[in-house]
Computed example of a mutant assay.
Amino acid sequence: MKDWILENSFDFEGREVRWGVQGQGKAIVIVHGTPWSSFNLRHLIKGLSDEYKVYYFDLLGYGHSDKSENDVSLGIQNKVLAALIDFWKLEHPIAIGHDFGGTTVLRAHLLDKKPYKKLVVIDPVAISPWGSPFFNHVNKHEEAFSGMPDYIHEAIVETYIKTAAYKKLNKKTIEGIIKPWKGEKGKAAFYRQIAQANSKYTDEIQDKYRTINTPTLILWGENDQWIPVEKGIKLSKMIAGSQLKTIPNSGHLVIEEKYKELVIEIKRFIK
């Protein structure tokens, strides 16, 4: 499989954030979630960059970005996004976020006051409570998990990510997802980001959803077992005028399973 490479580097408070850009036209900023990386956005990036200039990056603690023993929580990711938007000199980009990426674009908008021309969230972690039993268990035993042999760790990651998909993932996709989490740094980073996950980061913005007046599209995998579509229905009621579109035969990893449908819906919404 051809390596997924982010050619550019941005310094955020002494920590490296890797980023890339493709295409020409109106600016789109697209943000991945957990335990994913910008690799999982490759289909959307390709599908959108034929008409738009698409900016993408790896969140702190993910993919090719800094994996040091520091803050990788949702509390810092919106600050990274806000800093990148300033660095790229984007005034009103179209913002797209999946999973934690959806939370990140929402937090940057509501807390850092970053204006968007339009907003698209895909199966976002937006409404408390959230967090699987696995998340909660790692929260309590992070050190024990990060000290496991590599082959057990990789088996855990593979088993975990498979539950995000409605249909079977192909081998290349699985390898691409797991690759950033391999090795001592990758292994520690995987459990670190789970251990730092906390609903307080959505609690502090939930009441502000009603203030959003940016045109908003909510896309949801109809068979999402991680965050059920009922959360999407609730979110659509909280954001006035928002559109909710469910994607059949897809799970939380709809960005891999039904990316063609997502590109069609996003382009239709933008236009």
Rank of each mutant, 00 (worst) to 15 (best):
P215I: 04
R210I: 07
A164F: 14
A165C: 10
K168C: 11
S199P: 13
R210A: 02
S199F: 06
A164D: 07
K171R: 11
Y209P: 00
G186F: 00
A164E: 09
R210S: 14
W181A: 14
W181Y: 09
K187E: 00
Y191K: 14
K187C: 09
I194T: 13
Y201D: 00
E184Y: 07
P180Q: 01
F190V: 11
A165V: 14
L169W: 13
G176Y: 14
E184K: 13
K179D: 03
A189P: 01
Y191C: 05
F190R: 13
T173E: 10
N170F: 01
I174T: 13
A188G: 05
P180C: 08
K172I: 13
F190G: 11
K185P: 03
I194L: 15
K172T: 14
P180H: 10
A189W: 01
L169H: 11
Y166L: 08
Q196W: 06
I194Q: 03
S199H: 00
A195E: 00
Y191L: 13
Y166M: 01
G183C: 10
T211R: 06
I212W: 11
K168H: 15
Q193R: 11
I178P: 00
K187I: 05
Y166T: 02
R192Y: 14
R192G: 15
Y191T: 04
G186Y: 01
D203T: 02
R192F: 09
E184G: 14
I205C: 06
W181L: 03
K179V: 05
R192D: 02
K162M: 09
I212S: 03
D203G: 04
K167V: 13
N213M: 14
K200L: 04
K171C: 05
T214M: 11
A188D: 12
A195T: 13
K185R: 15
K187P: 08
T214R: 01
Y166I: 01
K208W: 02
D203Q: 12
E175F: 07
T202M: 07
A189G: 06
Q193K: 03
K208E: 04
K171G: 12
Y160N: 15
P215H: 03
A195R: 09
T163D: 02
Y191M: 08
I178D: 04
Y191R: 11
Y191A: 14
I177G: 00
T214E: 15
N198R: 05
K200P: 01
